[in-house]
């Protein structure tokens, strides 16, 4: 053993920003997360040049996976062009030289905040979701040590009670985003604050989903072809947002998840939340040769 073998050549910056030891730790934890779907794995969550809570968890996963051949897409609440998405995309490209895209079909790695694209993801794609609060039990058990014991015991009675109380009080389940879901019949996870519309897209999906919370220092994963079942009572069916009959005012797309845009006269118009899907629909309408992939929803109905 020589001094030379213990050192490495000087580099101005590690490739992909994170240093090798940070990447190894994330690799080990991600492998275990894939092996135990939906179970939250603690990890170190290193510093990245972005404030905690702005997607640092997802960013660390992306930095670990990225290479010169990885085409990256970043979305924030469905939009490729919001400040958060554009900043993360530019950062990932700068630290790795990876090509970027807005097209879901061309992406290898999709980092997303709070949406799953409307076009179906393939077997070779990785979806990285940014998670603000990885603990689905937090509303019913704020103590995270006790919550971990509840996960260990599969003790989800309080979770069910919370849903029951919402139905009794309000006539329906009031949980809008991050709908608690049972993964592989064992762990209840939060699917990150995606709308109820998107939760069914995870069930037996072809792609790999990695969910990472940088501030809370925990990650979990949903491998392909894994059961993800929103918690529902047998006699109260799972309901998605009622966007089936809404039409996008700009692209004319119908039956997808919409953003509501309030108007001066008190009414609302809608535009499709998946911005690039809307753009592609408009361009196709203009006669351009655009490829639009198969969508999860057809005419507002989920298809499997």
């Amino acid at each position: 053993m020589s001094l030379k073998s213990l050192t490495k050549d000087w580099e101005p910056m590690s490739y992909g920003f994170l240093d090798a030891s940070a990447k190894r730790e994330i690799r080990r934890k991600t492998l275990k997360a894939i092996a135990v779907p939906g179970c939250q794995m603690p990890y170190a969550s290193r510093e990245v040049p972005m404030a905690r809570g702005w997607g640092t968890g997802g960013l660390q996963i992306s930095c670990t996976l990225i290479n010169l051949q990885t085409t990256v897409k970043v979305i924030d609440q469905g939009a490729d062009d919001s400040v958060n998405a554009a900043s993360i995309r530019r950062f990932l490209s700068r630290v790795s030289g990876a090509p970027t895209t807005m097209d879901t079909l061309k992406a290898d790695l999709i980092q997303s905040r709070h949406r799953i694209p409307e076009e179906k993801l393939r077997e070779d794609q990785v979806l990285v979701l940014q998670v603000p609060n990885p603990e689905p039990l937090r509303p019913v058990q704020p103590n995270m040590s006790i919550a971990r014991q509840m996960h260990a015991d599969a003790d989800y009675g309080r979770m069910w009670l919370q849903l029951y109380e919402q139905i009794v009080r309000s006539g329906r389940v009031m949980q809008g985003a991050s709908y608690p879901s049972l993964v592989h019949g064992r762990f209840v996870m939060t699917p990150s604050p995606i709308p109820r519309w998107d939760v069914s897209k995870m069930h037996m999906a072809k792609h790999l989903t990695i969910l990472s919370a940088g501030r809370e220092k925990r990650l979990h994963a949903v491998p392909p072809y894994t059961r993800v079942e929103p918690l529902v009572f047998d006699d109260v069916p799972y309901q998605v947002e009622e966007h089936q009959d809404l039409t996008c005012a700009r692209s004319g797309a119908k039956g997808f998840f919409m953003n509501e845009i309030p108007q001066d006269d008190g009414s609302s118009t809608y535009e499709v939340s998946d911005s690039e899907f809307g753009v592609k629909t408009i361009r196709k309408g203009d006669g351009e040769p655009v490829e639009i992939g198969a969508t999860w929803y057809h005419a507002g109905e989920m298809t499997q």
Partner: peptide, 8 residues
């Protein structure tokens, strides 16, 4: 952008 080392 940084280039990946062989190790990386």
């Amino acid at each position: 952008h940084p280039t990946p080392s062989d190790f990386e």
